[in-house]
Simulated assay, not measured.
Amino acid sequence: MMIAGLIWAGLGLAGCQTIPRYDQGPPAFYDGVETRLLDDDLVNFIVQMSGAATTSNVEDYAKCAAAQYALIRGYGFARHVRTNVYEEGGIWRGDAVYTISPSLPLGSQTIDAEVIVAACQDNGIPTV
């Protein structure tokens, strides 16, 4: 069953941390991203994919969406708050929350949006 309001994309995404290449094993399909603004700088990303090898694949997809979203909103950085990943019948879903900001936020799980979007493109992971 598809998540209502999904934005279907066929691009590639990646996150600020090192993103593994997915050129080994079965192909991954990035089935869409739903973006929910929770507050001015707090955003929820619901991602769906099939063919994921690990939960890290789904987490990277969400990270790529967060990085692109930050750039779209005119911000350069994001900070990971949490990601929950689950799989059912070969369909993987991720529920991630990020804060976005114009300057480097405090915390250990921060990402530089431009760097992550470039890595996502290099690795074939879609962005918003």
Rank of each mutant, 00 (worst) to 15 (best):
M1R: 03
M2F: 01
M2I: 00
M2T: 01
I3P: 08
A4T: 12
A4V: 08
A4C: 03
G5P: 02
G5Q: 08
G5F: 06
L6N: 01
I7S: 11
I7F: 02
I7E: 11
I7A: 07
I7Y: 08
W8E: 10
W8M: 05
L11W: 11
G12I: 12
G12R: 00
L13E: 13
A14F: 07
G15I: 01
G15C: 15
T18A: 06
I19G: 01
I19Y: 01
R21N: 00
R21V: 08
D23S: 09
D23W: 02
D23R: 09
Q24G: 00
G25A: 13
G25H: 12
G25D: 13
P26M: 14
P27F: 07
P27M: 14
A28K: 15
F29M: 02
Y30A: 00
D31P: 06
V33T: 13
V33I: 12
E34S: 09
E34W: 07
T35M: 08
D39W: 00
D39S: 06
D39G: 05
D39P: 00
D40Y: 00
D41N: 14
D41W: 06
L42P: 00
V43T: 08
N44V: 03
N44E: 14
F45M: 11
F45V: 12
M49G: 03
S50V: 07
G51N: 06
G51T: 05
A53P: 01
T54K: 13
T55D: 14
T55I: 09
S56Q: 12
N57E: 03
E59I: 13
D60C: 11
A62L: 05
K63E: 08
K63A: 12
C64M: 09
A65V: 05
A65T: 06
A65N: 01
A66Y: 03
Y69A: 02
A70M: 03
L71V: 08
L71E: 09
L71T: 09
I72Q: 04
R73A: 10
R73V: 04
G74R: 03
G74S: 05
G76Y: 02
G76L: 05
G76C: 05
F77L: 15
F77Y: 15
A78M: 15
H80A: 11
V81S: 13
R82Y: 02
R82W: 11
T83F: 01
T83R: 14
V85K: 12
Y86R: 10
E87G: 05
E88G: 05
G89A: 07
G89D: 04
G89H: 09
G89C: 06
G90S: 12
I91W: 10
I91L: 14
W92Y: 04
G94D: 10
D95F: 12
D95G: 05
V97W: 11
I100S: 04
S101M: 01
P102D: 08
S103M: 04
L104V: 00
L106Y: 00
L106R: 04
G107D: 06
Q109A: 14
Q109N: 06
T110Y: 10
T110I: 15
I111K: 06
D112E: 11
D112F: 03
E114Q: 15
E114W: 07
E114R: 13
V115M: 08
I116A: 07
I116M: 14
V117R: 13
V117W: 04
V117Y: 11
C120R: 15
Q121F: 12
D122M: 11
N123I: 14
N123W: 10
G124M: 14
I125P: 04
I125V: 00
I125M: 15
P126W: 15
P126A: 15
V128D: 14
V128H: 09
